[in-house]
């Protein structure tokens, strides 16, 4: 138990000595692996979309994986460790605006800052929509998402339009994310990028309820397996196209 620092009066905590700043675990291992797996899926689906016809099947698997990762993240938002949970970091619009006004001088946030928390949700929602629209569209020739058969071809075309527009939005969002974390890392020297690698930030010691001291790896594995199973079943039970009347 790290009771002592909590009992110190606040003026001593933010005093010049800063003796109670130490590296502490913020991001559990499953969350970090999830983050980098999502990067791989995004890069992979982009490259395979550009690489053309022969890479379409691989593109589908990146999409299915992204969908499973999105489902995992939603589960981890409830069942992960403290800083992974949405309840911890989703701030009110007022708090976001207040944060924006003082972002330059703001003390480092332990987990997501009020704006970054929402940005993470936006990215997850965009990727979820992107992967979901992919299930319904086709290249009009050979490859079709598993649920292309359940929508009319005009609906499929409309969704295909969104599949392309959403990706542009994702690219913009990711670019902003990279610029933001670079600013926090090299501008504000908060070590944000490092924190997504080793999980730790150097901060004032927090209260026990805000301290992350486990990774919940087994739970994460089970949830990931569940998310993958849901996606696999959804893909597997999809009706086959009518090839005699293509």
């Amino acid at each position: 138990m790290q009771k002592l620092p909590r009992q110190l009066p606040p003026e001593k905590i933010i005093g010049p000595m800063q003796s109670d700043r130490r590296p502490q675990l913020i991001w559990d291992l499953p969350l970090r692996l999830w983050h980098w797996a999502l990067v791989v899926c995004l890069a992979g689906s982009w490259i395979t979309a550009e690489a053309g016809f022969d890479w379409t099947t691989t593109h589908f698997y990146f999409g299915y994986s992204a969908l499973a990762l999105v489902l995992f993240r939603l589960a981890w938002a409830l069942l992960g460790t403290f800083h992974s949970r949405y309840a911890t970091f989703l701030a009110s619009p007022k708090q976001v605006l207040a944060y924006l006004r003082r972002a330059k001088d703001a003390e480092p946030s332990a987990g997501h800052n009020p704006l970054g928390g929402w940005a993470s949700v936006v990215i997850v929602v965009l990727i979820g929509l992107q992967a979901s629209t992919g299930l319904f569209i086709s290249d009009d020739i050979f490859y079709a998402g598993p649920y292309n058969t359940v929508v009319s071809s005009s609906t499929a075309d409309w969704l295909a339009g969104w599949h392309h527009r959403l990706f542009t939005l994702i690219q913009i969002t990711v670019l902003m994310h990279v610029l933001a974390v670079s600013w926090y890392t090299w501008g504000k020297k908060e070590g944000l990028i490092q924190a997504m690698l080793h999980g730790k930030k150097t901060l004032q010691v927090r209260g026990a309820e805000e301290t992350v001291n486990e990774h919940r790896g087994l739970r994460a594995l089970l949830l990931l397996a569940l998310a993958a199973a849901v996606v696999a079943i959804v893909v597997y039970v999809a009706p086959l196209p009518d090839y005699e009347n293509y």
Partner: peptide, 13 residues
């Protein structure tokens, strides 16, 4: 119409 059945065969369906 002529293309479709070959797609089904290529996918093993």
């Amino acid at each position: 119409q002529y293309f479709g059945p070959i797609v089904g065969m290529a996918k093993g369906q």
